[in-house]
Amino acid sequence: MCNKQVPFKRDIGCWYPFACGACIFLLCFSGLAYSYYPYIVPAKLTIFEAASAREPLMVIFMGAAVVLPMIIGYTIFAYKVFWGKTSKLNY
């Protein structure tokens, strides 16, 4: 009888292909970003020319500093509420 469930029991290295693919993607993306640095528009506009004034950037930073911890806190709260309430999927 053939076992059709994936991953198999005691399948230790089943996550290697995903991890390698994700690493290759990140390395390619970071290489592409590094090759364009400091240009946003190649040979036309640099990061420093495209940046806004300091005051609006500070407002955006303050907003992110308030909202981001709230999102992380709500995510942790949701995980704690729903942890263990699901059953194992059987097909």
Results as ranks from 00 to 15, higher is better:
P69W: 01
Y34V: 10
P38M: 05
P17K: 02
A43H: 07
P69S: 02
L26H: 00
R10G: 09
E49A: 03
P69N: 04
K85A: 07
I60S: 11
E55T: 09
F82L: 13
G13P: 15
K88P: 00
V67N: 02
F77W: 13
V67T: 03
F25P: 03
M58G: 08
E49T: 05
M62S: 06
K44C: 08
I71E: 01
Y37V: 04
K85V: 08
F18I: 03
F29D: 08
Y34F: 14
I47A: 10
C23N: 05
L68V: 03
A43M: 12
I60R: 08
I24E: 06
M62K: 09
N3C: 12
V66D: 11
T46S: 00
Y16R: 10
Y91I: 13
S52V: 01
N90K: 15
C23L: 10
Y74C: 14
L45Q: 05
P69F: 06
G63W: 04
N90S: 14
A65H: 01
L26A: 14
F18H: 03
L27F: 10
M1A: 10
G21D: 00
V66R: 00
F61D: 11
A33Y: 01
A65M: 03
A78C: 08
D11W: 02
G84P: 06
G73Y: 09
Y91T: 15
K88H: 14
F18A: 15
I72N: 14
C23I: 15
K44L: 03
F77K: 04
A43V: 05
S52N: 08
N90I: 10
V41K: 09
M1G: 11
S30A: 11
P17T: 06
A65E: 00
Q5S: 13
Y16Q: 09
M1S: 12
I47T: 11
N3K: 02
Y36W: 13
V59T: 07
W15D: 13
E49V: 01
F48A: 11
L57A: 15
L68G: 10
K9L: 12
L57T: 13
F8V: 11
A19L: 05
M58W: 04
A78Q: 12
F82W: 04
Y16N: 11
G63D: 02
R10T: 10
K85R: 10
Y39K: 01
Y37K: 06
Q5A: 08
P42G: 00
C23Y: 02
A53S: 15
W83I: 13
I71K: 01
C2A: 11
F82M: 12
T86N: 15
V81D: 04
I40P: 02
V59D: 09
M1Q: 04
T86V: 07
K44A: 11
S52T: 09
A53C: 15
M62H: 13
C2M: 12
R10A: 06
K4P: 03
L89P: 07
A33H: 06
S52I: 11
F77C: 06
I76M: 08
L45I: 06
R10P: 10
F25K: 02
A51V: 06
P17I: 00
Y34Q: 00
T86A: 13
I12Q: 04
L26P: 13
F48S: 09
A53T: 14
